Amino acid sequence: MKNKKNILFMVIALSIITLAACAEDNKKNQNSASKTEQNQQVKDGPNKVDNTDKTASVNAIKVNKNIQETNTTNTVIKIEGRRKEFLGRLDSTQKEIDALPEKKDSDAGVTNAMRSYYGKSYDMYDKELNEIYTLLKNQLSPKTMKNLQTEQIKWIEHKEAEANKEASQYKGGTFELVAYNSSLYNSTKKRCYELVNKYMTD
C-alpha cells in the first residue's frame, strides 16, 4: 500500500515536471516566432511595398495616362457648326454699311462723307472681329489659341503699318484720314472672313 502511494506520488511529480517543461518550450517557441516576425519587419522596413499600395499606384498611373490622352485628343482646332452663322452676320454687316446715309456722297467722292463712311465701316467690322475673337478664345484649345494670339498680334501690326502707309501718300492733305480709315476697314473686313473660314466649320 505504501509502495502504491509512492508510485502515485512519483507519477504526479513526473507529470508536473513534464508539464512545466512543455510550458517552458512553448514559451520559447512563442518568443522565437515573435523575434522572427520582428526581424522580418525590420528587414522589410519602409522599403516593403504592400500589394494593395502597388495596385493603387499602377491604377493612378493608368488614370493619369488616360487624362493626358484625353487632353491630347480633345484639342479643339475649329469650332463646329458656327461658320454659316457668322458668315451670315458678316454679310448683314456689309448690307448695313452699304445702307449708311454717307455712302452715296462717299461714292461721289465727297471727302467728308468718305471719311465718315469709312470710319463707321471700320468700327462696325472691328466690333464683329472682337466678337469672333472672343468666341474663338472661349472655345478653341489653349494651344490653338496661343498660336492664334501670336498670329493676331502680327496681323494688328501689319494692319496699322498698311493704314499708315496708305495715309502717308496724302500726308497733310484732306484725303489722309480717308485713306487711313479705308485701309483699316478693308483689312478688318478681310480678317473677319479669314478667321471665320479658318477656325469655324458648318
Score class of each variant (00 low, 15 high):
160 E>G: 03
32 S>R: 15
61 I>N: 09
55 T>W: 09
18 T>S: 13
89 R>W: 09
116 S>T: 13
9 F>H: 10
141 S>G: 02
93 T>W: 06
71 N>S: 08
132 I>F: 00
16 I>P: 02
56 A>G: 01
139 Q>V: 02
129 L>Y: 06
177 L>M: 12
19 L>F: 14
71 N>E: 12
166 E>M: 09
41 Q>P: 04
11 V>F: 11
168 S>M: 03
183 S>V: 05
123 D>F: 07
102 E>K: 05
137 K>N: 14
126 D>W: 07
107 D>P: 04
163 A>M: 03
38 Q>T: 11
48 K>W: 10
173 G>P: 03
3 N>R: 11
84 K>S: 15
22 C>W: 12
188 T>G: 06
38 Q>A: 11
48 K>S: 08
12 I>L: 12
23 A>M: 11
30 Q>T: 14
1 M>G: 11
122 Y>H: 06
57 S>V: 15
198 K>H: 06
128 E>W: 04
97 I>Y: 04
153 I>D: 07
102 E>Y: 05
28 K>G: 07
183 S>G: 00
74 N>R: 05
190 K>I: 07
67 I>P: 01
160 E>S: 07
170 Y>N: 08
112 N>L: 14
14 L>K: 02
74 N>I: 02
36 T>M: 13
94 Q>V: 08
167 A>Q: 00
26 N>Q: 11
106 S>F: 05
172 G>L: 03
55 T>Y: 12
117 Y>I: 01
186 N>C: 02
189 K>L: 01
24 E>I: 14
85 E>S: 09
88 G>A: 15
81 G>N: 12
172 G>M: 00
97 I>E: 03
101 P>F: 06
116 S>W: 03
163 A>Y: 00
34 S>N: 14
100 L>N: 03
186 N>L: 10
35 K>S: 12
16 I>L: 08
60 A>N: 13
172 G>K: 01
8 L>V: 11
57 S>C: 05
101 P>S: 13
25 D>C: 10
66 N>H: 10
116 S>E: 13
56 A>H: 07
14 L>R: 00
52 T>E: 10
159 K>F: 01
66 N>S: 13
125 Y>P: 00
94 Q>A: 06
140 L>V: 00
34 S>E: 14
62 K>M: 11
123 D>P: 06
57 S>P: 04
73 T>V: 09
116 S>F: 02
4 K>V: 11
80 E>L: 01
99 A>F: 05
159 K>I: 06
154 K>Q: 11
191 R>F: 02
103 K>S: 03
154 K>F: 07
193 Y>C: 01
46 P>M: 15
142 P>K: 10
